[in-house]
Nucleic acid binder design. Structure first.
Lengths: 398, 398
DNA sequence: CACATTAGTTCATGTCTCGGACTATATGAT
DNA sequence: ATCATATAGTCCGAGACATGAACTAATGTG
């Protein structure tokens, strides 16, 4: 039922099949050409030709033939770990981060700079980020990894490479893609931190559903604000104006107090870090964790209360989006031991008979977004290797 | 980023381009071959070949050449009104309905049988529906319209042609596609009424956004229950288990009373027809409308109260899904004059700064779902004409 | 050592779209 | 009238690509 907008041509056919083959290799490596042919429906001869293109582009590697039951042993195909790499960057309220990931998704460089960025000039923070990016890029080069591009995670709304606004950082209309692109010479993308965290969790979090990686879930990221990333069919759901998934501003208390966003009774207002800390009468998240571990009742009540509000918001999410799982990330992952019981109870109290999705806890913590950012860069190559080949060819001739 | 699962072959290329051309003709008829070529990016020669296939399949018609500015006049291409037709059926709590739609979307037969189906045996109701379908099919035949298939709208959860459950009708595990298929000899699909109503509204409701048809919106259908249809990018959003969009069970009062679904404080429990009628102290929806027209304060308060609750639910929908518009359908369309002010105020009270989507009122009323059902059948042909050609060819030789 | 079995390559074939040449049919200027 | 120009649509050779069958390669089994 999809509306087709582009003519199908021979080049597109090849591009599509290259992606099909590379995707199969990425999912199930090591595999043989014959297995790829059987699983994709392409013929052996087609697969041979496609694979040979991918090998000469450096995206796929042959490794030692593995003996099979009988017959000629299969030559194993793997993603080339040195083929392409992606640079993930993150600007957040209290840290900057950079990660370089190779084609297989393995992190090859990782650096975090903790510093509160709220009071600072935008230009200063951007300059720091570019420094960080350059250092990461040098590391990639010294490891022989050609960077295909970069992606920056920011805690706010982004449209086409620009930061539209980041409520908790106070930025507005910042052309981050332009600045970082100029500073590094890379093609740069900018994307919401919650969405990237969701993708990072999907690709690298190790969660499974019925033996396959999660593809339909909602990721809740509890940083200073509360964000949400909706993933449907393995892709981020952005809505009409890229504003979808703002879980922090779902109404959980219709008669509640005014929130910073201008609404009333939003989840972030009722269960954000500020509210939890105030109720628990502690100063920092670290202090809150200690208090919970010590069994402090005020702290436990504060977290459980937040868990109940979170459950109300998630009940609406479940009703509207019907995901297979909910993943709790960021601060909610840290607080999970004292939070999930209240959240699960609240979800079930508000959803009734519907089969509830699984409530999972993030394994990546605050790294999810940067890793997701780096992942999007290499995934883009995997999803459209033909575009990558074309760029390579252009560089070779031009 | 889409995961490709099928090999691209020459046949698929042709199928894709047939769909591209037919889709262009459907959207902008009348058009010439040259215009189609310019707009799709295909060459004139390719378009000629594709069009000639579509004409011999009876999906496209040539009409009289229209004189242009200068040069050879263009022969106009249109969807063939007699090419294919779709049968839309609807089982609802208090009526059955059938519509036959031709390729252009024009309704060519329409019949509604009002009767309360709640107490009745499932088999009886299904038998009535099959009767209705047969009569509609005879009418199509006598008009020379070959039916390509049928689609049944039901007020509940459906999976692969079967009705899983319809809370307000009391059905569970009914193989409706099988029964109607056997009774009519057609290929039958079964789909949620709210989703089909949303599609009907999109295709036939005449709404526009920036000059183009709506493609990202949420349709609220207020029948006996409250349903929701989420349309993103022109397609229904179903979630992981086809349960998405259940707007009626979004939480609007976390401490509210228990709802029939087992949850608490659901929109349907707080603002459904039963609740409104009780508060307004009238017996029927017709009575409610009269009371509102007469200025009865209890009725007006009841409707405004429902509007406020609806606004809370829609605020969460807007925050999570970021649609361009909300369309109020069914009973909410009828009550719109006394409802929308409270709803709009409640939305803005609970969403704050976010640019609010437009609040539209359905033009189709309770016909939206059947028309959407008939529409899906013909749209399927338009979206994949190659499959239709293959079926035609199979019938001709077999 | 012959034979079965599986992996991967080669090449002729068929099916597409493309692009340019060609035909058809109009308007407007000379 | 006649010619230039412009636009619509067809025809046909060239090129790209997947297919499928035949072929080569490399292993284990009786």
């Amino acid at each position: 039922m999809t509306v087709r907008t582009e003519p199908a041509q021979h080049a597109g056919m090849r591009a599509s099949n290259l992606a099909l083959v590379l995707g199969e290799v990425a999912r199930t490596s090591p595999v043989s050409r014959a297995q790829v042919a059987a699983r994709t429906g392409l013929t052996k001869s087609s697969v041979s030709g496609l694979v040979s293109d991918l090998i000469s582009a450096g995206l796929i590697q042959e490794s030692a033939p593995a003996a099979t039951e009988r017959g000629r042993p299969a030559t194993a195909l793997n993603l080339a770990p040195g083929g392409v790499a992606g640079l993930g960057l993150e600007v957040n309220v209290d840290y900057l981060a950079a990660v370089v990931t190779d084609l297989t998704g393995m992190p090859r460089y990782h650096h975090v700079v903790r510093r509160d960025n709220r009071g600072r000039e935008v230009d200063e923070v951007v300059a720091d980020l570019i420094d960080l990016a350059r250092t990461a890029a040098r590391s990639a080069t010294s490891q022989g990894l050609p960077l295909s591009g970069a992606c920056v995670a920011v805690p706010g709304l982004t449209v086409e490479g620009a930061v539209v606004r980041t409520p908790n950082l106070g930025w507005a209309r910042v052309d981050l893609a332009g600045a970082v692109g100029e500073g590094t010479g890379l093609e740069v993308d900018v994307e919401n931190e919650a969405n990237l965290a969701a993708l990072g969790e999907m690709w690298f979090g190790g969660h499974e559903h019925d033996g396959a990686p999660l593809r339909d879930f909602v990721h809740v990221s509890g940083e200073i604000g509360i964000g949400g990333g909706i993933v449907i069919g393995g892709e981020v759901f952005r809505g009409a104006h890229a504003g979808a998934g703002e879980l922090g501003h779902v109404v959980v208390a219709p008669d509640g107090p005014r929130c910073g966003c201008g609404g009333h009774g939003c989840l972030e207002r009722m269960a954000g870090q500020q509210e939890i800390l105030a109720r628990a009468q502690v100063e920092t998240m670290a202090g809150l964790t200690r208090a919970c571990e010590a069994g402090d009742q005020a702290a436990l009540d504060a977290v459980a209360g937040a868990g109940r509000h979170l459950g109300v918001a998630l009940a609406s999410v479940i009703t509207l989006l019907d995901p297979t799982a909910i993943v709790l990330g960021g601060a909610f992952a840290t607080l999970a031991p004292w939070l999930t019981k209240a959240t699960a109870a609240s979800i079930s109290h508000h959803t009734g008979a519907v089969e509830p999705p699984r409530l999972l806890v993030s394994g990546l913590g605050s790294d999810a977004a940067v890793r997701g950012a780096a992942g999007t860069v290499v995934r883009r190559v995997i999803a459209d290797p033909a575009a990558h080949l074309a760029r390579q060819a252009a560089r070779a001739t031009g």
